[in-house]
Design a protein around this nucleic acid. Structure first.
Length: 411
DNA sequence: ACATCCCGCCACTCG
DNA sequence: CGAGTGGCGGGATGT
């Protein structure tokens, strides 16, 4: 019920539908010839693979270039205590992918609170420590939206349906604006500005962005009692009742992308719908039940149940077969300087969390323990104690931050 | 055949 | 205006 209510509200605000530009006649089969990459199957970068990596040089493999894998690598690359800034060009270069892909990753990571845009080409790395707060925010906003005074489920549904003429009123008119990025203004202990005040009307532009979709998708999980939903359902819910088929298709396509990165972050996992056998996603993140209660379980133990795994972790990087143009970006750049320190990007495949690093502390500490584990599952496995300590410190930091946030938990 | 979703063209935005 | 962003959906790949 909650989810539905929320969905309706969301649909009201979102739903700008696809611009459906008539398909330009370009249908060129732009696919790199299936030529196998020149030599090694692993690009020089990130080739941390130690021994028996299954280094078959298979021709092109789509899996090696999935957004999910890319995200995994992205995180492995930047989730370190000393990282505070992320440059898009830098990321693209080091991960060996075109820039466009970085935008995809960054957009969803930002919507989850892991990153924050600082400036053009520049993001601030916040890390997993930013997730709890972001989720809380999302949940709060979700429940707020659910009881949107303006319009309710039913009314919304029929308004913009009509013909296939997708384009609808870009009203948005949702209660409080601010639907943009959840401002990570840490230093700004905001306030419940009852005053709508300025609403940056300037850029609520095409805010049906990937980031927003991600947030709405997540809200679905946060407000839903049954944590398991198929992308189709999600799309249907997030889209008004008036599913315009074509819009649905596009939405679902986007959701696939989002689901992939959220999966790689272990915030959700792919499973089978108990009965129908249909693939669906289950929420693994916290901040589910109302704050009042402790969250206890959630993360399925310290080790994932080997679900419908996407076989991540088998590779360390996204191979960049084609060398097409796009190298335009001042390729005079220095060599790929790979800073893959003394660790290997946590392959979520082999070992799992080996050292929970959890000190016995109960109290409410309990609830965040899961978060630690979550992060741990991502954290690169350090091979030397020094870095381990470094991380311990890091963990300490975000924990206190989290505690600080929940401290004044209302209700 | 159907599900998944990579790729990159090109419309917008922003600096 | 050019560079930065990022919707969007064709159609290749996976199962």
């Amino acid at each position: 019920m909650d989810a539905v209510a929320f969905a309706a509200a969301a649909a009201a605000a979102a739903d700008l539908s696809a611009g459906a530009a008539e398909d330009p006649p370009l249908a060129v089969t732009r696919r790199p010839p299936v030529q196998a990459p020149p030599v090694s199957c692993l690009p020089p970068r990130l080739a941390v693979d130690g021994g028996g990596g299954p280094c078959r040089h298979h021709a092109y493999s789509r899996k090696q270039k999935s957004l999910g894998l890319l995200c995994t690598n992205f995180v492995a690359l930047y989730d370190r205590a000393d990282v505070e800034s992320v440059g898009l060009d830098d990321a693209a270069r080091r991960l060996g992918v075109e820039r466009r892909r970085i935008y995809d990753i960054v957009n969803v990571l930002e919507s989850i609170g892991i990153l924050a845009r600082r400036a053009k080409n520049r993001y601030t790395w916040i890390g997993f420590g930013g997730v709890p707060a972001a989720l809380k925010e999302l949940k709060a906003r979700a429940s707020r939206e659910m009881m949107s005074p303006s319009m309710d489920a039913t009314s919304v549904a029929n308004v913009s349906v009509s013909d296939d003429e997708d384009d609808d009123k870009l009203d948005d008119a949702d209660g409080d604006a601010e639907s943009e990025k959840l401002s990570q203004s840490i230093g700004n202990p905001s306030d419940k500005p009852g005053a709508p005040c300025c609403k940056l009307r300037s850029d609520h532009r095409k805010e049906k962005s990937l980031g927003l979709l991600t947030q709405n998708f997540v809200k679905l999980f946060l407000t839903m009692e049954v944590d398991m939903i198929s992308l189709d359902e999600s799309a249907r819910l997030l889209l008004g009742e008036g599913h315009a088929e074509s819009n649905m298709r596009t939405k679902v396509r986007r959701l696939y992308d989002i689901a992939n990165v959220l999966s790689s972050l272990n915030l959700i996992e792919k499973t089978q719908q108990a009965d129908s056998r249909k693939p669906a996603f289950r929420w693994l993140g916290q901040v589910k039940r109302n704050e009042g209660a402790t969250i206890t379980d959630a993360l399925p133990s310290t080790k994932k149940t080997l679900p419908n795994k996407r076989a991540f972790g088998t590779d360390l990087t996204n191979i960049d077969t084609k060398r097409s143009k796009l190298s335009s970006t001042t390729e005079n750049k220095a060599k790929l300087d790979f800073v893959y320190g003394p660790f290997h990007p946590a392959g979520s495949r082999t070992q799992e969390i080996d050292r929970p690093v959890q000190e016995k502390e109960r109290k409410e500490r309990k609830s965040i323990q899961d978060w630690e584990n979550l992060a741990a599952s991502f954290r690169p496995q350090y091979q030397n104690q020094a870095l381990n300590d470094l991380f311990g410190h890091y963990t300490e930091a975000w924990r206190s931050w989290y505690m600080d946030l929940t401290r004044e938990a209302p209700s």
